[in-house]
Every structure is written in structure tokens, then in C-alpha cells.
Design a protein around this nucleic acid. Structure first.
Lengths: 197, 197
DNA sequence: CCACATACATACGCAGCGTATGTTGACGAG
DNA sequence: CTCGTCAACATACGCTGCGTATGTATGTGG
């Protein structure tokens, strides 16, 4: 019944991560008080500084965790598709849809860049951009899309996705805006096709 | 020789605006101390709170000012173009180039969204999105581009532009990345053309 | 010329971060 | 077994920085 020490440590780490994630997602990075959310987890700031160095360190860990989840979800989506092109499109539509979730919106798209700088420079994150770039490479091999720099294009597409998500999330009627945005987004992506299908 | 009172007031307002803009642009919103940069302008926080309500209020005013300048510059660029399509493209390339400037990068793309929320909801700012949307409407009338929701498309394009700028600004070799990004960006935009010129 | 409002400066309180300093419990050496 | 040591936290302190309440002076209308 005795738990090994290492397990206890991992547990407190996880508690801090979860508490921070919750606070950052709900009230944002700047408004999240370390005293408050560590206390909520039954701990103190001491534990936080020990495990993550500082507030930014915890935030980076949260970002990393969320990014991994997002990448995972995107992979599952694209794996289901019939064709590569379809997979690519659904992957991006999925990205838009995920960016609609308040937690992702706030942490990954609003506070993230402000606190950690440009997302493409994040160490343990951007599985998403990489995934899109890989899809584009495959499509180029197939001759399915126009000749374009894959990495550049991936960045544009990712940016457009998050832009779409921002738009939807902040509109008066997210549901209606969502269908409008996704429809236009598909048209937008179709511009990349070699045959203009 | 005596200056009228109203002129003095406008002057201190301008001083605060300039000092805030400088500080926000250099060290970012969070790191900018109101005590510091008001003192640098030969004033105190008292004046700031009087004119702008709070730190966020001053920041919003700075954002508004910069947005006006950006919109102005974009209008000048598109006015020079021979064709509407060319104007549209140059406008967007201009947008990318502007987003390269550290002050704009930091204030408009990094801290702005984090502090004030989604850019499209800013009261006295987003001349840029509106400008792009207008260009797209004109192009649609001409039948120069594919059938697509103008507002939606404008948001995608704007997002892609700032994505490109972020990429360039944070790369190891901004100059080289810039030519690569702009080239790809033109190809990317070409996807919107009806005739695929 | 006097009362009042405006345009600031000064003073104070409080929250929040980071660090320096305990304190406790788990392992390894002998 | 027991003792020293180190990791894993908690506690305590100081400092910075924001917001507000209050003071003060100068210009302005009656």
C-alpha cells in the first residue's frame, strides 16, 4: 500500500501542472496568482519553484502538455481520411475547431506568444506546424498541390487557422460564424490545389 | 509667447503617449514600469491615470495610434499599384514587412492580443483588416478572384501575413527568411486568383 | 476677485513575485 | 540499526509595481 517516493513526487508535479493549467486557462497568465492556485492544489509556491523554476517555467510546461495533446488529436484526425488532400484539409479544420476551445485559445494563442515569444521557437511545442508541413510535403510528392515552400506554407496555413479560430471564438454568434469560417477556409485551402478541385 | 492651456495639456498627453509607446515597444507591456517611463517623460503616474485611466488605457491609445499609421502606410502602398490585384498583393506584402518592425511586432502582434483581447474586437483599430476586406470586395467585383467570403478571407490573409512576419522576425537570418517568405506568400495569395495568373 | 474645476503630484496600502532560509522525511553507508 | 545527507517541500522576508485617495496649484467663468 505504501507508495514509492518517486510516485509521490510525480504526483505533486502533476497537481501543480493541473492547477496551473486550470488557472491559466480560466483567468489568464497575468491574473493567475501562484499563491492561489498552488494553495488550491494543497501546496505552496515553494513546490512550484522547486519543480518549475518560476511562473514562466510552469506555464511553458503547461503549453508543452497542451501542444502534445493537440498534435495527438490532429494525427488521429488525419489518419482517418481517405485521401491525403482530404486528410490535410480535415487536419486544418480540426485545428480551427480545437482553437475554439477556451483553454487552448487563451493559453496557446493569446498568452502563449506574449509570455514565451513566437510559437515557432518554443522548444517542446509545435508539433502542429510540423504536422502540417509533413502533410504538405506528401502532397507535393503526389503533385497534388502547387509548387510552394512547405515550411512557409505550413506557417501561413497555421496562422490562417488560428485567425479563423480567433474570429469564431470572439464573434457574437460562434456557431453561425463557425460554419461560415470553415466553409470559407476550405475554399481558401483549395487555392493550393494543383488541379483546383 | 504664452502657450494656451489646452496646448500644454495636449503636449503632456503626447509626451505620455510617446513615453509609453517607447517603453512598450522596447521592453513589452508587462515589463514596462509606469513609474519609470512617466518619470522619463518628466511626469508622474498621476498624469497617466488622469489622461488614460490606467495602464491598459494608455496601451490601447498607443495601439490605436500605431494602427492608424499602419493603415495610412498600407493605403499609400496600394494606391501606387497598377492593377487591383497587384495592389492587393503589395498591400499584403507591405503588411508583412511592417510586421517586421520590432515595435509593431511587439505591441500589435504579441502584447496587444494578450492585453486587449482579439484584435478584430479592438475599438479604434483594425483599419488593416478592413482595408484588406475592401480590396477583396473590389477584386470580387472584377471577377479576379474565386468566390469567397470577403471578411473571412481578409482574416485568413491577415493572419497569414502576421504569421509570415513572426517567422521572419524570429528566424536566425531575417534577411534570407524574408525573401523566402515573401516569395512563398505571393504564391500562396495567387491561389485566390480566378485565372491562376 | 473669488469660487470652482481641471491638471497634475504626492502618499499610502496591498498584492504578487522571487529568494533566502528553515524543516521533514526518505534513502545509503557503516 | 542509526546517523548523516540530500531532495522535496514549506515558511518568511523584502522589493517592486499597480491603483487609489488625497493634496496642491493654476487657469477660468461669473
Amino acid at each position: 500500500m505504501r507508495k514509492p517516493r518517486s510516485e509521490m513526487i510525480a504526483e505533486t508535479r502533476a497537481k501543480l501542472l493541473a492547477a496551473g493549467r486550470k488557472a491559466f486557462g480560466n483567468v489568464g497568465y497575468a491574473e493567475a496568482s501562484m499563491d492561489d492556485f498552488t494553495a488550491e492544489a494543497g501546496l505552496t509556491r515553494g513546490a512550484l519553484y522547486h519543480h518549475f523554476g518560476d511562473k514562466k517555467g510552469l506555464f511553458a510546461a503547461v503549453v508543452s502538455e497542451i501542444d502534445a495533446e493537440m498534435t495527438q488529436r490532429l494525427c488521429e484526425i488525419s489518419a482517418k481520411a481517405q485521401t491525403r488532400w482530404e486528410g490535410f484539409v480535415e487536419e486544418n479544420v480540426g485545428y480551427v475547431r480545437m482553437a475554439l476551445e477556451p483553454e487552448i485559445q487563451r493559453i496557446m494563442f493569446r498568452d502563449g506568444p506574449a509570455v514565451l515569444g513566437d510559437p515557432s521557437q518554443w522548444p517542446n511545442a509545435n508539433g502542429c506546424i510540423a504536422a502540417v508541413a509533413r502533410s504538405l510535403d506528401s502532397l507535393k510528392e503526389d503533385g497534388a498541390i502547387v509548387a510552394i515552400d512547405s515550411e512557409a506554407c505550413a506557417r501561413f496555413v497555421n496562422a490562417a487557422s488560428s485567425g479563423a479560430a480567433q474570429w469564431i471564438a470572439n464573434s457574437d454568434n460562434p456557431e453561425a460564424t463557425s460554419v461560415r469560417a470553415v466553409k470559407s477556409f476550405r475554399t481558401f485551402l483549395a487555392g493550393l490545389r494543383a488541379d483546383r478541385g
